[in-house]
């Protein structure tokens, strides 16, 4: 089974993010692997270890941070990596990235695509599903478990509205995984060192056989025109001291001041 995993380099959400004049202030930001993609990588590596899958990852984006992230995927156990680096990709949305990923898919001969459910910078949750539509492949999103049935079939569990949905998928297929599917491994020092020497297959759009126009880069379906700071919720009263006393006091306030009891 050949697996393609998608990974995106995203801004570290744990750090402060400042907005000024409608834009995000770049200074002080750091970039890390998208948490959901880290789970996608772990899923692929486990399928390699337990089901002899071959694993490839792809990232659409350039720069040193991106390369570092791909090496992290290698250190976790991914065998080969593709990086699509093109200045024309500076502005993109989920449709554009899905189109690029479609081209990557069509160059390989993959049985399963694993994407993260959501990218932490966009919080869109769209790219994997759109990719499946473009490829005409079956797709299940928000997956929390994968079981290989045979060469042509997998069984997945998806978190749905009414409970856990069990779906049998015919390969090739696309799944998007939630972070709760696994606990991504911390790579060993030895793997990190080996990963540094591994080649990365870097391509621009032309090498991929496409163009800025074809991927829809010039005609984005939507674009962010302004970033704003979210409304801040202020902390209120904090009580310390004798548990019985302060708890009774707070219950009184909930009833009489907030009037919610």
């Amino acid at each position: 089974m050949k697996i393609l995993t998608t990974v995106k380099n995203v801004v570290d959400v744990e750090l402060n993010i400042h907005v000024e004049n409608g834009a995000i202030v770049e200074e002080g930001l750091q970039y890390v692997i998208n948490a959901w993609d880290e789970s996608a990588v772990e899923t692929a590596v486990q399928l390699k270890e337990n089901n002899n899958a071959e694993t490839t990852l792809v990232s659409v984006g350039g720069g040193e941070d991106n390369t570092k992230m791909i090496r992290r995927g290698y250190a976790m156990g991914i065998e080969s990596g593709i990086q699509i680096d093109d200045a024309a990709l500076a502005e993109g949305d989920s449709f554009v990235y899905a189109k690029v990923l479609q081209k990557v898919y069509e160059k390989g001969d993959y049985d399963l695509v694993i994407t993260g459910k959501q990218a932490q910078d966009t919080d869109n949750g769209q790219t994997g599903i759109i990719l499946a539509e473009y490829l005409g492949l079956p797709c299940v999103s928000n997956v929390i478990a994968i079981e290989v049935i045979d060469d042509q079939h997998i069984k997945v569990s998806r978190l749905g509205d009414a409970g856990t949905e069990i779906v049998e998928l015919e390969l090739p297929a696309v799944v998007t995984v939630d972070v709760s599917i696994n606990e991504p491994r911390l790579p060993q020092m030895r793997s990190i060192m080996m990963a540094k020497k591994k080649p990365i297959d870097v391509m621009d759009l032309a090498a991929l056989g496409t163009s800025h126009d074809e991927i829809g880069g010039a005609t984005l379906k939507s674009e962010v025109v302004e970033f704003m700071a979210p409304e801040k919720r202020e902390g209120g009263q904090k009580f310390e001291g004798d548990a019985a006393e302060i708890t009774a006091q707070v219950v009184g306030l909930l009833a009489n001041e907030a009037k919610v009891l």
């Binding site: 939507s222 674009e223 700071a229 979210p230």
Partner: peptide, 9 residues
């Protein structure tokens, strides 16, 4: 951490 205003094209 941010709020976006998005224009639909």
């Amino acid at each position: 951490k941010v709020i976006q205003r998005v224009k639909v094209n």
